[in-house]
Computed example of a mutant assay.
Amino acid sequence: MPTIKIDNVDYDLDSLSDDAKAQLQSIQFVDQELAKLQMQVAAMQTARNAYVNALKAALPVVPGSDTIKLS
């Protein structure tokens, strides 16, 4: 029989109420969506870094300046 541990208490999944099972499914769905969003954030950060580097390469050299700050 499968169990789930919540607040250090093991619960038999088969004995949970339909409402409890629905809440558990909702939590699992949200966890999956959060994981997808975290992967998208990582991809967007990587893309942003690449765009910043490409912008730096495309800008003319300004004497006496060696940094760019983008907000």
Rank of each mutant, 00 (worst) to 15 (best):
D19F: 10
Q40I: 07
T46Y: 04
Q40P: 00
Q25G: 06
A42I: 02
V9D: 07
Q32T: 10
N49L: 13
Y11F: 09
M44W: 08
D14N: 13
G64S: 02
V61I: 07
S71C: 09
R48N: 14
Y51V: 07
I68W: 01
V62Q: 05
L70W: 04
Q45Y: 04
M44A: 14
V30C: 00
V62E: 01
F29S: 08
A57H: 04
V30Y: 06
Q28K: 09
A57M: 09
D18N: 12
Y51R: 12
T67H: 03
S15M: 10
N53V: 07
L34E: 01
Y51E: 15
L16K: 08
K5Y: 07
L13W: 01
A43P: 00
A42Q: 04
K5R: 12
I68F: 02
D12L: 11
D12G: 07
D7M: 12
V61G: 04
S71N: 13
V41S: 00
P63G: 15
V62S: 05
S15N: 13
T46H: 04
A20V: 06
R48S: 10
G64E: 02
P2C: 03
L34C: 05
Q23L: 12
I4R: 01
Q38W: 02
A47H: 12
P2Q: 10
S71P: 08
S15D: 12
A20L: 07
Q32V: 08
K36E: 08
L24G: 00
A22D: 02
P63C: 07
K56E: 13
G64V: 10
I4H: 02
I4L: 03
K56H: 09
Q40Y: 02
I68M: 00
Q45W: 06
D18H: 09
M1K: 07
I68P: 00
A50G: 07
N49V: 08
S26M: 07
L37F: 06
P60C: 03
